[in-house]
Nucleic acid binder design. Structure first.
Lengths: 219, 219
DNA sequence: CCAAAAGTGTTCGGTCTACACCCATGA
DNA sequence: TCATGGGTGTAGACCGAACACTTTTGG
């Protein structure tokens, strides 16, 4: 039993995933997803949270950690049978990745590029499923706020959707649309000018999890 | 590694789940979800499909079989550690349950009642999660057609939503709403009067999986 | 003053709700 | 002919897209 984790973030205007360069065979030199075995006294969720912390320093509560798949083909690991539970973690900003633990090289790779590259094991398939899952989650749930810092502006939230969906959204309409959804955003005092222009109001994520209607580009 | 399966259907105007009375301890005499261990040469999905067939005679393709959870608390089975992957199967009509295999008693229990009753192991929690999952799936996907026979009328489909959501839907509006969603329903020749009144047109499920907008009761 | 980003107003067209009404069968 | 459920028409409320416009900052 193992937990593999697809850690996604947005930096430099790009949608990125954290990959590790494998040192040893099998697949030595290839990029792979972070992951590890489940210990005897922990749940699979615990193992995923532990793995996330080891790689990024984020506690589970500071990110959106969600199981999305189970990979159990008997020969997916050439050495022996390993059933893997796969998770996505949506994290706010790539704090410099800690080159600790396994001492392997880690890198935030743009998702587009990672999808083209052949990864170790069946990780290409897992990554593809994870990205599809994340895009759908943004559509139906409030998951997008997990990519933002604790306090964020509506425009920053909009940019998350624009980058993940590769679309353009009308700033004015988006503004009203998200504010009308009760429980999505909670206002906080203060404004910021960190994006230039007129000072923008700050918000935090509200308690709502499922959107009452999809936030998709159009109908 | 085990697969537990929450087999849901609609009969007699009620939302029901297939439960098995356990013969042996632990939890002898209690009701439990069907389930079994994963063999060395199969995937977890295979194990779930096999279990479904053993209990109901349905092939995986004739139902909507979906993984929705992983239960891995180290002490969830008092005998030894068992990590269980949980599935929902939405099936059309309860063909008489085959009292084969384990020779245990099986019963289609109304979901409301099953949720109140204490089940074996952590199966009450699994059932609760499964029902919540199924209700949400009906909202966002075309899953409801899995409860209908191969050819069904729009009113039959409407009744699925009404029963699972415990609501009333306007027949006329529902009719137009689902027909307008491209890929949801495909017309077939012929009509039926099996529900009385004016003959109703027949449809089959189309290729669409995710609805472009939630089919919820109202906004 | 200008550029840039935030946020508001307004118009137009489509969609949903509610409910009236017609249709096609069996009894 | 009536009861029953299938299906269509329609008016009004509501909502979303498009886009013009105002606001508030930094340079």
């Amino acid at each position: 039993m193992a937990a593999d984790i697809v850690i996604l973030t947005i930096t430099g205007g790009e949608f990125r995933v954290l990959l590790i360069e494998r040192g040893k065979d099998p697949f030595g030199g290839r990029l792979a997803l972070p992951g590890g075995f489940v210990e005897a006294d922990e749940t699979v969720d615990d193992a995923a949270a532990r793995e996330l912390f080891e790689e990024t320093g984020f506690e589970a509560g500071e990110s959106l950690l969600e199981r999305f798949g189970v990979y159990s083909e008997p020969d997916r690991d050439p050495r022996r049978r390993v059933v893997s539970v796969a998770y996505t973690a949506l994290v706010p900003e790539p704090p410099q990745t800690r080159a600790g633990g396994d001492a392997a090289e880690t890198a935030w790779v743009p998702v587009e590029r990672a999808l083209e590259e052949p990864l170790a094991f069946d990780h290409s398939r897992i990554l593809g499923d994870a990205v599809a899952h994340a895009r759908r989650r943004l559509e139906y749930t409030t998951a997008a706020t997990a990519f933002c810092p604790k306090e964020f502006t509506i425009a920053e939230l909009r940019r998350v959707y624009e980058i993940v969906w590769r679309t353009r959204l009308d700033p004015g309409n988006f503004h009203r649309k998200v504010l009308r959804i009760e429980g999505f955003l909670e206002p906080v005092d203060g404004t910021t000018v960190r994006n230039g222009g007129r000072p923008a109001a700050l918000y935090t994520a509200g308690p709502l999890e499922w959107l009452p209607l999809p936030l998709s580009p159009a109908r």
